[in-house]
Amino acid sequence: MKKAIKLTLAVALLMGSTSLFAQKFGRINTQEIIMAMPETKTMQTNMEAYGKEIQDNIETMQVEFNTKYQDYQKNYNTLTDMAKEMKEKELQDLQGRIQEFQGRAQQEYQKKQNELLAPIIEKAKNAIDKISAAGGYLVVFDTSTGSLAYFDEATLTDISADVRKELGITETPAAK
C-alpha cells in the first residue's frame, strides 16, 4: 500500500509541477464511514446474538463439568479405584471438549463476522469509487489506515460527506 502511494506520488511529480497542481487529491476515513452505515449496526446486533448463543453453549458445558466434578469430589471416598479412574477420564474428556469447542467457536465467530462485513465493505468501496470518479479525483487517501507519514490536510478534499450521502447515512460523525 505504501509503495503504491509513493509510486503514484512519484509519477505525479514527474509529470511536472504545473500538471500536479491541476490534479485533485481527496481523503476519507473509510473506517468511520463503515461504522456509520446502518448495515454495520445490523451486523453488530447479529454478531452480539451469535456471540451470546456461543457463550450460552460454553456455560452449559461448564455447568455440566462442574456438576460432574462436584459429584466426583463428594463421592471420592466411596468410589473404587477403577471408578475413580473412569470419572477422572470422563472429566478430562469433558474439559478437552470444552476447550476444543471454545477454539472452534472463536474461529466460527471470526468467520461469520468476516462474511457479514464483506458486503458492507464492498458497498462502501463502490460508493467511494463512484464519488471519486464523479469528482475527478486522481487519488483518494484513506486516513483510517494510518499509511501516510505526512499530508497537508488543507490540500486534500474530504469526500466523506458525499460518500455518506451516496450511502444514505444521515447522522453526522461524533466530534473528535
Rank of each mutant, 00 (worst) to 15 (best):
V140K: 03
K6L: 15
M61T: 06
K52H: 03
F65T: 02
A83I: 03
T30D: 01
L9R: 08
K6I: 15
N57L: 05
M86I: 10
Y137F: 12
I28N: 07
K6S: 15
S144F: 10
T145K: 06
D56G: 06
E166Y: 06
V140P: 07
D81A: 15
E48G: 00
T78G: 09
D152Q: 09
M43K: 07
M43T: 05
K87G: 00
V11Q: 12
M1P: 10
M15P: 00
E59M: 14
K165F: 06
N66E: 11
Q23C: 07
R104G: 08
D152A: 13
G135M: 07
G168A: 05
K24S: 10
E115H: 12
F141E: 04
Q73G: 00
E100Y: 06
E64M: 07
T80L: 07
V139Y: 13
V11C: 06
Q106R: 11
M82K: 12
T145N: 13
M15C: 08
E166S: 11
I58S: 03
G168W: 08
P38T: 03
L14M: 13
V11T: 08
E39Y: 02
D142Q: 06
E108W: 11
E88M: 08
T155H: 02
E100A: 10
E85H: 03
T157K: 12
N29R: 14
A124W: 01
P173K: 09
T42V: 07
K84D: 00
A4Y: 09
V63K: 14
A83W: 01
I98R: 05
I5F: 15
A22F: 10
G103W: 02
V163W: 08
E100F: 03
K3G: 14
A161D: 06
K74L: 10
Q102I: 08
I5V: 15
I58D: 11
A149W: 14
T170I: 04
G103I: 05
I169P: 00
G103H: 02
T80I: 04
